[in-house]
């Protein structure tokens, strides 16, 4: 297998590289980072639904929509990336995503341990240190290969991450708080953290221990040409704004197991917005907008009946529709 130690790359090339290798059917590990700041969406997402495009435009923030899964991520120079490209017919590649991530995130866990960070795998594809997310990952089939792409946070720009997403100011505030509570960085965990080069070196060693010896490789013309060809495709509006899932309301992952939901329900007397935080699919916190529609007593009853319950939108609608005050308090 080949290893591409590519260091700082342009924003788009840092993503195009693993697409290009997969389309060329080249198995390899890429260790890299970016010198730019940009936002990267999973394939299922549409920037128009997901992002505050005005904010992105005004601040010169580029957008990349990758061909693999996972959510929207803020990427900049304070992160190190690893991308693993393996052929689908490789007998060592698990078929199921949960097995795939668990297996190939093991070297990253080992690298974290070597750095003095006690990392644990949190299904499906997060790594946590002291219960907080330090690494996010996504995967997918590209060409005849399976790809896992992820990164480790050296430092994280929480504000920029919150600002690029399309959401209400209330949700943005909650999201920012939730991120700070549920995410961590190498800098936060270790006062004197190693350089990117040292981290790449450890990642390289751990992946080699796991996958066997790798041959140092550089980007030849074949791969550079493929990057150029793919750049046209992935930067086109036709790809970027291709229809994705349009979720009613907003669902934002803070880390595996922790989500924020913002949803509007129509009632006879007007819309009610709810904002809730779920832990392991159960409602942890919930707030309702439009106070004039709900008396304080009914609000308290509603919150008591929903906190701790499993997050199920249909159940929330059912509970709300059965609050008499909701239709008469206006």
């Amino acid at each position: 297998m080949k290893i591409f130690n590519l260091g700082d790359m342009n924003w788009n090339e840092s993503q195009l590289i693993y697409h290009a290798l997969a389309h060329k059917n080249i198995e390899g590990l890429v260790l890299h980072s970016t010198k730019d700041k940009f936002v990267c969406l999973g394939m299922p997402q549409n920037p128009k639904d997901e992002l505050d495009l005005d904010y992105c435009n005004e601040n010169g923030i580029k957008i990349f929509r990758r061909e693999i899964g996972g959510g929207t991520v803020w990427l900049d120079r304070n992160q190190v990336f690893y991308s693993l490209i393996l052929r689908r017919d490789n007998k060592d590649v698990p078929a199921l995503p949960k097995h795939f991530f668990k297996k190939f995130l093991q070297p990253v866990i080992e690298a974290c341990n070597e750095l003095g960070l006690k990392a644990e795998y949190r299904p499906t594809c997060d790594l946590l240190v002291n219960g907080k997310k330090i690494s996010g990952n996504g995967g997918g089939d590209i060409g005849d290969c399976k790809v896992m792409a992820g990164g480790l946070l050296l430092d994280f720009d929480y504000e920029s991450m919150a600002n690029v997403l399309r959401m209400s100011s209330d949700l943005r505030k909650k999201y920012l708080e939730a991120m700070k509570e549920n995410m961590t960085t190498i800098e936060q965990e270790k006062q004197n953290y190693p350089s990117k080069e040292e981290i790449f070196s450890i990642l390289r060693e751990k992946f080699q221990d796991f996958l066997g010896p790798m041959q140092e490789a550089t980007l030849g013309d074949e791969i550079k040409d493929m990057i150029k060809e793919l750049d046209e495709h992935y930067s086109s509006d036709a790809w970027l704004y291709q229809r994705g899932v349009k979720n009613p309301g907003r669902e934002i992952k803070v880390r595996e197991g922790v989500y924020l939901f913002e949803t509007e329900f129509d009632t006879k007397n007007g819309p009610v917005e709810i904002l809730c935080e779920t832990h392991e699919e159960h409602i942890q916190k919930i707030t309702f907008s439009n106070p004039s529609l709900i008396s304080p007593e009914n609000r308290k009853n509603l919150e008591e009946s929903l906190i701790g319950a499993e997050y199920d939108k249909r159940n929330i609608i059912y509970v709300i529709s059965n609050v008499p005050g909701l239709q008469t308090d206006k």
Binding site: M43, P44, P97, G139, D141
Partner: peptide, 24 residues
Amino acid sequence: FLTITKKEVKSGDAIGSFESAKFV
């Protein structure tokens, strides 16, 4: 996530994608 991207199809061709467990 589920999407279909092809119209004319051949046996064994990818006709679309789905996402589960952060994997497309």
